[in-house]
Structures are given as structure tokens and as C-alpha cells.
Write a protein that binds this DNA or RNA. Structure first.
Lengths: 111, 111
DNA sequence: TTGATGTATCAACAAACGTTGATATATTTC
DNA sequence: GAAATATATCAACGTTTGTTGATACATCAA
């Protein structure tokens, strides 16, 4: 039972997902790998802008890339998305005995 | 089959989850609702800092609050976490026919 | 070798974000 | 009433983030 989150890693993952351009990129990559120029066309984004977002995704482990000649192809790393999935589950409220719901709060600021 | 993401909503959700303090708050709330002063004690965070983060979480729909006298109690909104879960699934690569993997790219910048 | 092409990186900037300390507002207690 | 308490909000500030345009670096084509 995973009780404690890796806060830094989780925040990094969620941050990488917290931008519309990056989500649009991932949405495109669902159908298979794409080279940067294809993303550029489809998303109508400047080249350096795309490059920036791809780097954020890559550093978070959400995508991997492959170079072929002068083209770079990016694809989704399914394991990373599985981590996101697992995090969402890990944050769900515990189903636990009602008695344990409110822990003893020694500070005593509230009833 | 949900093909297109609500980018703005998704980005908002993920952004709310992209901060360590906010993740620590949610982790505490898994065990049931807590008042702000309890979170303050447990997370050793300034009051206005906590208030700020709770507002971000609330605006993203990840928590709900309840006032009782001078205390505010916050709790997780499980539906929102289910949305996060669903998003992680929706972003997974499609399992599709190999033939469809690479779409026709009319721009013709790459092979 | 030269020129074109695809991509990464950089510097500069504006906008968004998170922290802090001060103040405001409501509620309870005396 | 007045003082104390829990929380929210605000202004100010430094930091991080995302955008743009310029440049660098490969690779390919002629």
C-alpha cells in the first residue's frame, strides 16, 4: 500500500501536463509517433515554441524521441501515463473506518 | 469514445496538482476533512500560504469546503480525482491497426 | 563545397505563480 | 461591549514559465 507520494516527482509530472500546448501534443502522439514538423503544421506553433514544450515533456519522462536523419520523432512513454493514472488513484480518499476518519489533532486549535 | 480533450479544463486540473504543497494538502485530506489550522500545523506552512493553495485547489474543483463557526473544513472532491484518472487513460496511446499508426501528412516535410 | 532544411538552444521579455507580511472580516469568549 | 481567534484577501516582491526571434548545429541535396 503506497501511503506517501513522491511529491517532487508527482509535481513534475503534473506540471508537464498543465499546459494546453503540451496536452495538444500528447493528444496528437496518441496515434503514433510524429516528427516535429508534423506537430508544427498541425498545431500551428512556432518551431522554437514546440521544441521548448517537447523538452518539458521529455524531461518529465512523458515522451521519448528518436532521431532519424534530420528529423526527430517523438512518441508517448506509456509508463509515465500509467504513473499519472496511479497518482490519481493514490490521491483518492481512503475508504476507512469512520472512527479513524478524524485523527487526533494534538494542537487543539479546533473542536 | 472521447476523442478530444477539454484542454483548458485539463490544464487547470493538472496545474492545481503541480505543486508540492498542494499535493501534500491532498494527501492529508485523503483521511477525511481537515480544518485549515490542522493543515497549518501538519504542513508547517504560513496561514496565508495555505489559504492561497486551498483556493487554487477549490477553483479547480479538487476540494470543497464547509464553514462551521470560525473554522473552515476542507475535503477532497472524489469526482475531480476521477476526472484526473480518466484524463490519464484518455492520453494513453491508442491501440489501433498498424496501418493507421502514421497518418497522411500532407505538408510533406518529412518522409 | 555550397546551400537548403529540420531541430535545438539561447537571450530577452512579459505574464503567471508562489511567498510574505499586513490588514480585513467574521465568530466566539469574557 | 472588548479581546481573542480562524480564515480570507491584498499588495509587494522575487521566481518561474512560456513566447519570440536570432543563432548554432547537424544532415541532406546539388
Amino acid at each position: 500500500m503506497a501511503t506517501t507520494l513522491d511529491l517532487a516527482r508527482s509535481a513534475q509530472l503534473f506540471h508537464a501536463l498543465s499546459d494546453e500546448t503540451r496536452l495538444a501534443i500528447l493528444e496528437m502522439l496518441r496515434d503514433g509517433e510524429r516528427c516535429v514538423c508534423e506537430l508544427q503544421d498541425a498545431l500551428d506553433a512556432a518551431q522554437s515554441r514546440l521544441s521548448f514544450h517537447l523538452r518539458v515533456l521529455k524531461e518529465a519522462g512523458l515522451v521519448e524521441d528518436r532521431r532519424e536523419g534530420r528529423w526527430s520523432y517523438y512518441r508517448i512513454t506509456p509508463e509515465a501515463l500509467r504513473d499519472v493514472h496511479d497518482l490519481a488513484v493514490a490521491l483518492q480518499p481512503r475508504r476507512t473506518h469512520a472512527a479513524a476518519q478524524r485523527s487526533a489533532h494534538s494542537g487543539g486549535c479546533c473542536p
